[in-house]
Structures are given as C-alpha cells and as structure tokens.
Design a protein around this nucleic acid. Structure first.
Lengths: 194, 194
DNA sequence: CGGGCCTTTGACTGGTTTCAACTTCTGTGG
DNA sequence: CCACAGAAGTTGAAACCAGTCAAAGGCCCG
C-alpha cells in the first residue's frame, strides 16, 4: 500500500527502496470514513495527507453557512491547508473525505525531521508544490477565462468519471455557482442533445 | 544589488556568503523597461525572474483581445510561467513589467545545474513554491468569498500604495471585472464618504 | 500641440442568484 | 427490510449584479 507512495516519489527523484524503508516510520496509514474531517477550519493543522484511495476536498464556510469547495484531491495527490501546516497557524480550510479513503499522513514535526534527515526529499516536495502552484494558477485562469457554462463543460470533459462520483452540490460550489443553476445547465444540455 | 537576493535566500535557509558568491554566475542582472515582456504567451519560457525593484504582472489574452491579469510580482518575489518553465513547454501567460524594473534572471538549464551543484537550494525553492501555492489558494478563496466590491476594498486596503501605482484598467482585470464597473464603484464610494 | 489611450457616464441587457415549493434520493433505526 | 426523515436535486418566478456598447472628457507622451 505504501508502495504507491514509494512509486510516486520515485517518479520524481532518485530514491532507493532502502531509503524509502528507512523513511517509513515517519508516515502513518489512515483509514478515513466518508465525510470525516482531516483538517478543520479554525483548528490547528498538524498533518499533511497523501491520498492512496478515494478522494478528499478542501472547503471553507461562507457567511450564510454554505461550504465553498476550493479543490479536490484524488489518488496520488497531497492535500492539507498548506499555509496553516507550514506556519503552524490555525486552518482557514476544512479538508474532508468525499468517499471512504485511504491516506498516508505525516505530522509537521515528522516532516521537518524527515527533511533534515533526508534532504533529497526537499527536491520531491519542491516538485510537488511547483506542480500544485501551477495547477492553482490554471484554476484561476479558467475561472476568469471561461463562462460558468464553459467551465462546467471543461471540467466535465476533463474528469468525466469523477463528476459521476460526487454530489452536484459540491461540484456546483467548486465551479463557483449555485446548485440550482447547475441543474438548469444540465437540463439545457440534455435537451440540446436530443 | 544581488545582496537583496542573498538576503532573501538567507531568510529561508542557512547559506554562507561564500556559497552564494559561488552561485552568482548562474544569475544575470536585468534592466527591464516599462511594458517590456519577459515571458510571452505562446513562446517558450526559459527564464525565472526575481524582482529587485519595480513590479511585474502576469496575464493572458482573452478571446476579445483583452488582457486578463492573473497576478502581480513586486520586490522579493519570483515570477515566471511556472508550468512552462519547469516542463519546457510554451507559455500560457505573458510576464510584463508594469514599471521600470530590475530583476535577476536564471535560465532553466542554469536552474537545473544550480540545484544539482547546490542541493540545499531545493529547500529554498520548496519554500518559495509552498508560499506561492498557499497565496494562490487564498486568491481563489477571496474570489469566491468576496463580492466584487468587497474584493476591491480588500485589495485596496491591503495594498493602498500599490493601487496608486497601477492603471485602473489592470487593477480591474486582476479583480475580475471591467474598468467601467470599477469606475462605478469608485464613484459610489467617493459619494459615500461625503 | 495633437493623437491615442485611459477613465467616466448612462442606458440597456442578460446571465445568475435568490427564494420557495415540490420531487427524488439516501441512509439510518426500528 | 421497510419506513420515514433529512438531504439533495429540480423547477419556475422575480430581482439584481455586472457586462456590453457607445459617446464624451481627461490626460499622458511624443
């Protein structure tokens, strides 16, 4: 199971299975139930998570009590409130399992020790954050570039299987509009295809 | 002048001035005129830039020929089309000087060699990307959380000096609305203060 | 001094939200 | 395994935020 993490690391940097074995004690395997919170908005965020199976999402609470989804994490992605995790602040976001999930977690202290003991892992995480940053910039680009309808179509065509797995309510909030309007869009498109 | 970069690195990691001196050949000092492009959408992106003085912005072209600004870089920030730079693809964004600027640049090849020769720099860039990623997530959060008017007020109160320095047209595009609407907002707020 | 770009202003338009009522789905306990 | 409660999704009407278009004024830079 932690093979998956090993392979993911090995895809980015040179690492021997011996080294990885030595690093194992820093990681913990976790079983997460659907709707379980891994990070909670307003509380300290001490762990970083790597998804082996299932999916997570990150959201924050809006003034009217809704949940605004910021991003998803599926297999082979790291997720946490990066800002809170790295600076030891309280979280601005909640990280929650959308489905039953298996994740690997590492605490802030262990992360620091891991990086001190195995400096080559800095390179791995540099690449991880580099990619996450680039993805986030593209997210912003799409938000501005595409109309709401185009944004939905774009996402639907890019992750056709994924949108089947998740509630429309959450998808709508990720895309930045109301569930009602998503409903309207889907209706319109269904008619168009006849 | 490259002192500024040294101090910025030293703020993040342990580094001797000897090591930094040895790294200097990898960097180039650049004088950039206002409106000069450092990265051009559609062309290869071979350099990464660190701002010593002045300011840059990153934007892409919309279908109707407008410029949608994605982010700004002021003193002590790195900026490039990260995705294109790291993967050697053509750029999705243009990086342009908003004012006369002094920047330090490093090419992709030099960056790779630098990281190979001085692996501790991986840690520096890991932290840089970590912070950039966190900032980008907050950007997305604000886009969703705040109304257009609140977004403007938020930005105006956070960077009061900066908004004096930049054309409203660019500010409006960064905030995600039209110059006309920004004009309306400013008018409304001016009246409110009487 | 002139030309072009940036900013302002106002009228009109439409994409989206909001609200409320109704239907369908889901999961939990008896 | 069924029943029922609460959540999720659909529908339609009304309101509004913000965009588009067009025209005029202001300002910077050559």
């Amino acid at each position: 199971m932690s093979d998956i993490l090993f392979q993911h690391i090995a895809k980015h940097i040179n690492i021997s299975s011996n080294d990885f074995a030595a690093m194992l004690p820093y990681f913990r395997l976790l079983n997460v139930k659907k709707k379980e919170d891994l990070v909670m908005e307003g509380k300290p965020c001490r762990q970083n998570y790597f998804v082996l199976k299932g999916s997570l999402r990150m959201f924050f609470l809006t003034e009217n009590g809704g949940e605004q989804t910021i991003q998803f994490a599926i297999e082979n992605w790291w997720m946490t409130d990066v800002d809170a995790f790295s600076k030891g602040k309280t979280a601005s976001f909640t990280v929650q399992a959308m489905e039953h999930a298996e994740v690997i977690s590492i605490s802030k202290e262990d992360m620091d020790q891991l990086l001190a003991a195995y400096p080559f892992m800095e390179r791995y995480f540099r690449m991880i954050y580099e990619r996450a940053y680039a993805a986030s910039l593209f997210r912003v680009k799409y938000i501005f570039q595409l109309s709401k309808e185009q944004f939905y179509n774009h996402f639907a065509s890019q992750y056709p299987a994924f949108i089947q797995r998740i509630p429309q309510k959450i998808l709508a909030s990720f895309l930045g509009f109301t569930p009602e309007y998503l409903s309207e869009l889907r209706k319109k498109q269904a008619l168009g295809k006849k």
